[in-house]
Design a protein around this nucleic acid. Structure first.
Lengths: 142, 142
DNA sequence: TTGAACCCCTCTAGTCACTGGAGGATTTAT
DNA sequence: ATAAATCCTCCAGTGACTAGAGGGGTTCAA
């Protein structure tokens, strides 16, 4: 039986985060000692590892919840898991594209900056004048 | 004199967001009509455009606050603005690298998925078994 | 067995950058 | 004069945690 601290350490999670996952129903309520402390078994370790791994792959907790449901009912369709993963991939690819546009823009700002005097800083110019922009970059660079 | 709605529309911002920026001191308190409604001038439009443009480039509001200070005191150093932009670029590049690692992993999951039966879905397998991972992808794929 | 060290508990509130809604006032156009 | 559209404030919620206060539990050695 593992304490919450051990469980957290083994999965690279913070203790508070484990309790948070429990509070939102992503992890089941574990056994407790007489003193009221949580004690976990191997199944809990697996489930938390699954969650963390999903997070590392950029899945939202909502998506992970769906994937856990699928994993709990293995008779169901693989297609659902596949489509969740495909959605995730699409989002990741969109983010990459947006960030690459920002990268170009930022590099241009910085390159230009070196050649100008203090009073006419290109970084600030570029921010002031949207027209300076080469790319019509998308909404927010998350 | 512009209403808040017009100001918002011109800068691609929501009305609530404009008020939010005012509430955190990013925009100055504007004039008001006798009835208490906000009325904005061209300087407000510029400042808000600057903020929005910064956001589109992925700067945090904190960074934008610093950049606005620099823009307000043009006698100060361009180097500060440059270093903020450089930090931002570094962060963007890190995010791209992380996302590209995720992309590889997700593609592999999805490619493998098609070849397996419902009962042994690769997507779920990969999430279950960290050992399945080729890449040791970083913390959270933001 | 007593004490120290370290862990655990709940609860509340904060983070970031907004977004949404309730319930009501103002402005504008007809 | 009235209707539609916009505006106001205030409060609460999002996602995914994170931090801290104030207290209790567990474990090990002396």
């Amino acid at each position: 039986m593992l304490t919450i601290g051990t469980l957290a350490k083994r999965t690279g999670t913070k203790v508070q985060t484990v309790r948070y996952y429990e509070s939102i129903g992503l992890l089941p309520e574990p056994d407790r000692t007489e003193g009221g402390q949580r004690r976990y078994g191997p199944a809990d370790l697996d489930r938390l590892a699954f969650v963390r791994h999903g997070r590392q792959l950029g899945f939202s907790l909502e998506a992970i919840r769906d994937l856990l449901d699928l994993a709990d009912n293995p008779a169901q369709s693989c297609a659902d898991a596949d489509s969740i993963a495909r959605q995730q991939l699409k989002q990741v690819e969109e983010r990459i594209a947006r960030l690459q546009a920002l990268q170009v823009e930022l590099k241009r700002m910085i390159d230009d900056c070196g050649q100008h005097s203090v009073a006419q800083c290109r970084v600030l110019e570029v921010l002031r004048d949207h027209a300076e922009c080469l790319t019509d970059h998308a909404n927010i660079g998350a």
